[in-house]
Structures are given as structure tokens and as C-alpha cells.
């Protein structure tokens, strides 16, 4: 099966003072239809930059995609013109954002905002689009959609706004949905509802989802596969089950230890010391080495992503050897 999205060696750089520094360094990602890939990592690891690079929504000055390709529908998105890109945005690839409170236009009704994409990308008439907006609002389980389409965003609660955002994103039946921390601003019960909604929509439509989050609990709930990012690199990829059962990279392991779990005492939470190095001060060797408990002299050389099992890759030679030996 050819993947819906196939990112190869993507490097995105930002201008910091006078030099260009990579926020995302040579990452490979692919997602298949009807699959949810979770991209996990702490703040500054390059998750959002990866999503924004895919849609080419980075600021025009001060940021550039310097290498790599973003394969989508047989085309390399990095080579398309701005005009071709705007036909893909919202139509074939849609994105939902973190803040449902501010991601809707306060001066337009929710229905009009859902219909807007249909008018532009699908050339629907106003009445058709309004009818479809009502149907979509129903599909994302907003109660009383016939009345709610005429409401303004401030009349919606946070969870309902995020549902409205999802309806806007899914209006044109995209093949790929980029979800950038869509549940972070919601409380936990609403979060669970939105996640199961996304999961159902994915199955119904056979859509590919790239789900960006820093919350491993969310990952466990929604992801089929997981890519763990650290300092602009993918440090480990595995299926969701494998990653939780058998993490190989020390960073993944540390993340799991820092996550509260019902079956462990809260005191056993272990914070990861230090923070992600800034993009202008990345270490030469393994980027995680300064924070790693397993550091070896060989970590001074930059490791590459190596297979450690079926569909499981990690960027840590120290642990990979041990894993294979065991």
C-alpha cells in the first residue's frame, strides 16, 4: 500500500540571528490511509514545525525547507507553487489547531465557517453548502445542528468549538488530517469524546491522521503508530503497543516514566532533567546524550535510526545492541 503522506529527509531551518538552524533535521515519516500516526515529544522538539512544513504554512521570511521531500498523492509538496498549495490546503490536507477558543472567526456564524471551504474548494452553491454544514455539524455530534449552524463561536463551549473546527477541517473530505494538539486545551472528559470522535471519523472515511501531542495518555488512546521526536529528530518509531511495552530509546523510556499511571504510585514519576537544547545549540553527537542515563563514549558520534525489531526503529546504538542481545 502506498502511504498517503510520505515525508523523506525533511529538514526545516529557521534564521536565528545570522545563521540558519534546523528545527527539524532529516525526518522520515509516512502515514497510510485509515491510520493514525502520533508524533510525540516535548515542547521544542519540532512536532508542529513538521506539520506546518507539510502544509507549507511556515512564515515566508525566516524559515525555509532546505532539504527533503513531502510526498502526497504522487507529488512533492515542497516543489508546488503557492497557488497549487492553496488548492491542497483545506481540500486534500486539513489541519486542526490547539486553541478552539481563538481558532474560529468571532464575526462569522459557525455554519458559514464550515460552508466556506465547500464554497471555495468544491464550488458548491450557498444552499448546498449550508445544508452540508448542518450535516457535518451533526456528524461531529453537536446537538441540535439545525439551530447551532446559525450560532456565533462565542455561543459554543470549548469542546463544541473544537468539534466545529473538526467539522470545518473535514468539510472537503481530506485524505489527510494534521491535528496539532487538538485536545490540549480541553478538559479530560471532553478530550476523550473528541478523541473517540476523531477515531470514528478516521474509520468511516479511511482518512490518514497525523496526531501531534505531548500527552502519552492521548497517544495510547488514539494512535496506531507512534513517532517520538526529540530536538528535531525522530528518535524512535514503533506501533503503539510495542512502544508502550518495549521502549528502546532512553528518551522514550524517560517519557513513559514521567507519565502518571493508575497502576503506579504518583511518587514514582521521574522528571527528565534539563530541557530540549535550543535549535542553535544542538550537541554534535547524540542530541539526547546530555540528559541520558545510559551515555557512553560512543554517543559522541551522531547515531542513525536503526531497526530493533519488526516495524520498530530507534536512534540509540547503545540500547539497540542491548535490545538485540536480550
Amino acid at each position: 500500500m502506498t502511504p498517503v503522506l510520505d515525508i523523506k529527509g525533511l529538514t526545516t531551518e529557521f534564521r536565528v540571528k545570522n545563521g540558519w538552524h534546523a528545527a527539524v533535521r532529516g525526518i522520515d515519516l509516512s502515514v497510510n490511509a485509515n491510520e493514525t500516526l502520533a508524533v510525540v515529544g516535548e515542547s521544542g522538539s519540532g512536532k508542529s514545525v513538521t506539520a506546518l512544513s507539510t502544509l507549507r504554512l511556515l512564515p515566508q521570511t525566516g524559515a525555509r525547507i532546505s532539504r527533503g521531500e513531502v510526498g502526497f498523492g504522487g507529488r512533492d509538496l515542497t516543489k508546488l507553487s503557492e497557488r497549487e498549495m492553496s488548492r491542497i490546503r483545506g481540500n486534500d490536507i486539513a489541519m486542526i489547531f490547539q486553541e478552539p477558543m481563538t481558532s474560529l472567526n468571532p464575526t462569522m456564524t459557525v455554519g458559514d465557517q464550515i460552508a466556506e471551504g465547500l464554497l471555495i474548494h468544491r464550488g458548491m452553491s450557498r444552499t448546498e453548502a449550508a445544508k452540508e454544514a448542518r450535516r457535518l455539524l451533526d456528524e461531529v455530534r453537536v446537538p441540535d445542528p439545525a439551530r447551532r449552524v446559525n450560532d456565533y463561536p462565542h455561543q459554543f463551549s470549548g469542546g463544541m468549538r473544537q468539534r466545529a473546527m473538526i467539522a470545518i477541517a473535514l468539510a472537503c473530505r481530506p485524505k489527510l488530517l494534521l491535528a496539532d494538539e487538538p485536545t490540549t486545551a480541553l478538559d479530560v472528559t471532553v478530550q476523550a469524546q473528541v478523541l473517540s470522535l476523531l477515531d470514528d471519523l478516521k474509520r468511516d472515511r479511511g482518512m490518514a491522521i497525523v496526531f501531534i501531542t505531548h500527552n502519552l495518555g492521548v497517544v495510547a488512546q488514539i494512535a496506531d503508530r507512534v513517532a517520538v521526536m526529540y530536538a528535531g529528530e525522530i528518535v524512535e518509531t514503533a506501533t503503539c503497543d510495542t512502544l508502550f511495552a518495549d521502549p528502546v530509546h532512553p528518551y522514550t523510556e524517560a517519557l513513559l516514566k514521567a507519565m502518571p499511571r493508575v497502576d503506579r504510585k504518583a511518587e514514582s514519576l521521574e522528571p527528565i532533567p534539563g530541557s530540549v537544547p535550543s535549535i542553535s545549540a544542538r550537541p554534535a553527537g547524540c542530541v539526547y546524550a546530555p540528559r541520558c542515563n545510559y551515555v557512553q563514549p560512543s554517543c559522541a558520534a551522531h547515531p542513525s535510526l536503526v531497526p530493533v525489531g519488526g516495524n520498530h526503529e530507534a536512534r540509540c546504538p547503545v540500547r539497540a545492541d542491548k535490545g538485540e542481545a536480550a
Binding site: M108, E116, G117
Partner: peptide, 25 residues
């Protein structure tokens, strides 16, 4: 604002973003 960013992610033209999403606000 996030909704302007979201508009760009939905493939709206700059003219539409300025006229429909920024001006009324």
C-alpha cells in the same frame, strides 16, 4: 490570530482572509 492561521491552512486566498476574516473584526 489563530483563526487567520486556520484560514490559511484551509487554503483561503489572501484577499478572502483580508476581506472576510480580518476586515469585519
Amino acid at each position: 490570530q489563530d483563526f487567520v492561521e486556520a484560514g490559511r491552512a484551509l487554503g483561503f486566498s489572501p484577499g478572502r482572509i483580508m476581506g472576510v476574516h480580518i476586515l469585519p473584526n
